[in-house]
């Protein structure tokens, strides 16, 4: 297994950290090593939030990802910040519901996802992050769909179990999105 890398970035409140944690958790459920490194401090309140996730079947050297192989941007400032940093040949996933600009780089693969619309259509307006999680799982193949669903189930726990079906529905909507379209 190659080392899988993801940086996710957006506004605080978009569920960026949750997206990253679920991805890492799915990796751990498959018995892999995983690191989740949040941006923290003042950045947690109101500003942009980002997190870096590494999943590997070998011990992970650096959890810091200056040039991630895969990057998710959920708002325009994040596109500006992270587009130049994606590793050549990497993947940039852009939430086109909120970002009208196109990426400029030609040496990476870009996937435009109207994540807010897809989430709304699937029944949970606020779950754009789960749509994107589906895209990440599909685009990277880093973790299995079942592990991702299990990660969501465990994270919701018994207290929020009633939200599981709708979350899985939104995840499926992401998984069904044509990433090559």
């Amino acid at each position: 297994m190659a080392q899988h890398e993801l940086v996710a970035a957006g506004f605080g409140g978009q569920g960026i950290m949750m997206l990253g944690k679920l991805f890492a958790e799915a990796g751990v459920l498959e018995g892999n090593y995983a690191t989740f490194l949040p941006s923290y401090g003042p950045a947690m309140r109101g500003g942009t939030a980002n997190c870096a996730i590494v999943i590997s079947n070998e011990p992970i050297a650096s959890p810091v990802l200056p040039h991630p192989k895969v990057c998710v941007v959920m708002n325009l400032p994040s596109l500006k910040t992270f587009e130049p940093l994606v590793a050549p040949g990497g993947i940039l996933i852009i939430n086109s519901s909120l970002i009208k600009e196109k990426a400029k780089r030609t040496d990476i693969k870009t996937i435009y996802v109207p994540a807010n619309e897809i989430a709304e259509k699937a029944g949970m307006t606020k779950a754009a992050n789960i749509v994107i999680l589906g895209i990440v799982v599909k685009a990277t193949g880093a973790v299995k769909v079942e592990s991702t669903k299990e990660a969501i189930k465990q994270t919701l726990g018994e207290a929020k179990a009633k939200y599981l079906p709708i979350n899985l529905q939104v995840l499926d909507a992401g998984l069904n999105f044509d990433i090559n379209g």
């Binding site: 890492a24 892999n32 690191t35 490194l37 949040p38």
Partner: peptide, 10 residues
């Protein structure tokens, strides 16, 4: 350090 304190790891 702050990085080890704040990061999550398996």
């Amino acid at each position: 350090d702050g990085l080890l304190g704040q990061m999550m790891e398996a």
